[in-house]
Nucleic acid binder design. Structure first.
Lengths: 198, 198, 198, 198
DNA sequence: AATGAATGAGGGTTCATTCAT
DNA sequence: GATGAATGAACCCTCATTCAT
């Protein structure tokens, strides 16, 4: 039935949201299933009925997280802004910039779960790589990326920046979202420490 | 007695080393006091006699870790190599590039422990800031850093790079330590995505 | 409607069969209602609609089991074979010789269920006693049972044999169903360890 | 130290006894670790410290149980009574005649524990077989067992009797320990249903 | 100073059962 | 009558910590 289906989905969403929130706040290990249940206003068992286990839950959270990041990145790249703006939007993707819980999550997801490991690796190998390659192409086309720079190195650099920003959210989170600092950092990404010359 | 003192210190060191090893391998939460005791070949209670609690232990580990990083950075800055080499050495500090256990540790240390939070913040505010400022000064003096770049932004950039590299150790760990990639990345840090022109 | 009735009965049978199978395989406590539902291809709730509770289900299983044993025994006694063959057929009743799940079942059925306890005891007192008495009468009539042996003792002996064989199914289950061993054991039941003399 | 050792052993014994009692009363699966802890007046965790897991506990219980039975049997065989008395003493071993919890225990012990399975099988193959062979030899020597009876069959018969009595403890437990019934049953074991003739 | 033994609190998970449709 | 979804209670187990020696 429709009502039941929708209700079930609502509970599912509610659990997922609660899980994401608490994982971000306290990390994966410190968040208990009972905490999640309480926050989602749901019985603990309902979580098991939906996701099978805590690992099953984190699996879904990770999948949703990864897809979300990718989707947003694609949306940004499809727009018409100049490259620096796109770069800024992608690298500073707000939704993921929220404490370094991500690493722990990924680790937890991959650790005891070969299937998940495969999923993550494949996701990285195909989707992320392709998306990042698009970014780099755009940058080269618009003259913001040195055409001689190998795609491999560029991708690694961007990844380091993403993760670094991600892991520095404690330093950034108090800034107003329109602070000049973002622009300046973005400028650094493109022109380096040495800055624009001539 | 001297022998007793030395023996005591040896136990202390043994516990610390065991803790660091296991934290790196399995993370802070997944490492139990009993694990550490077993690896250090010591009774659990001995750990409590020395460090008071698990949090007390992690406090010491963090202090040692931070001091180590700082000391190495100072050593590097005191040398005579050109700025790019120094930058590379500092940013890629091998000893800390070892799984992203660091973030979890810091979080654990700071979370339930105001004293520790104070220590870390003060450490950051004084020691790290000062050291990073030294790096930036050197860079400016040698013409590798845009003199108009504010110290604040530069420091943030360097911190982002450090943490990003740290969090990307999974991508870097299979590389030979003399790979060109390090040089290329370092080049990117200085000259940006746009590269050296003219 | 007839079709609905028959369908309902089919579900009932399907549940009972699934329960018996799983109880035999894994025991009563280790078999969950959800397991039974899955094997019977039925919703858990259907089991409750039919039997009220897990205990209610086990009650029905036990009743069916007991009636089955009794019915087979009566069939055998009604036949024309000589007494030793009848004895063998009854004591080695294949259908119940299938792991010692039986005891657990009876215990579970009787434990929290006074009504069931009453049923089992009455069943024992009337049906089983009567049937066993028939066996003994036949044995005496054909000269295979010492006429001076009290019915009480003889019945107890037969019951011990039945349960002993039941509980030894692990030792017997690999034997071919026509093995000499069955005859030899049966011979022992009649002639004892000392054997036929003279 | 001596005091600590003795205290530890006392706790160990206390736990074992509580476990045996409860297993006999309610069966293995229905007895929770917390029940055992409460009855032994000990923290649950102490049970884990001593036995590692519930399965570990049942392992020890089973080992103790088996060794006990064997030891008593050997003691009996070493005595000077005539064979029928020995047979009675062994087959009706009181200490094990206490509900059919035994089967469930063995099953639980062997199920998830290859090491235990090995232990039980080896125990059966060597100790039990040898002891039973001794019984049979004594019976033959004293003329109570048909010399032509194969050892295999005789052992199986005795085992069936043991288990049958074991599983019939509900029928026997109300009898006074000196009841004639025991003698009569024993008589049946030796002379069979047909009784002594001539 | 060091230890073996013991523990209260809490974690993930399963189960028999009920509710709403 | 049948079901999918949801649940409270209970279970096995682990952990950081303390007690007695």
């Amino acid at each position: 039935m429709d009502g039941s289906e929708r209700k079930k989905d609502r509970k599912r969403e509610s659990i997922l949201r609660a899980a994401v929130d608490l994982f971000k706040l306290y990390g994966f290990k410190k968040t208990s299933v009972s905490d999640i249940a309480r926050r989602a206003d749901v019985s603990q068992v309902t979580i098991y009925n939906h996701f099978g286990s805590k690992d099953g839950l984190v699996r879904e959270v990770v999948k949703a997280q990864l897809s979300g990041i990718l989707e947003r990145a694609r949306g940004i790249m499809a727009g018409e802004e100049p490259f620096p703006d796109k770069l800024e939007a992608i690298v500073f993707d707000k939704a993921q910039t929220a404490s370094q819980y991500h690493g722990e999550l990924m680790q937890a997801a991959a650790q005891n779960d070969p299937e998940m490991r495969e999923f993550i690796e494949s996701f990285w190998r195909t989707d992320v790589t392709r998306a990042t390659a698009d970014v780099i192409d755009a940058g080269k086309r618009e003259g913001y990326i040195n055409p001689q720079l190998s795609a491999e190195t560029a991708m690694l650099y961007l990844e380091i920046l993403r993760r670094g920003i991600f892991a520095s959210s404690d330093l950034l989170e108090d800034l107003p979202p329109d602070a000049d600092l973002y622009r300046e950092l973005n400028y650094l990404f493109i022109y380096g420490l040495i800055g624009r010359r001539g």
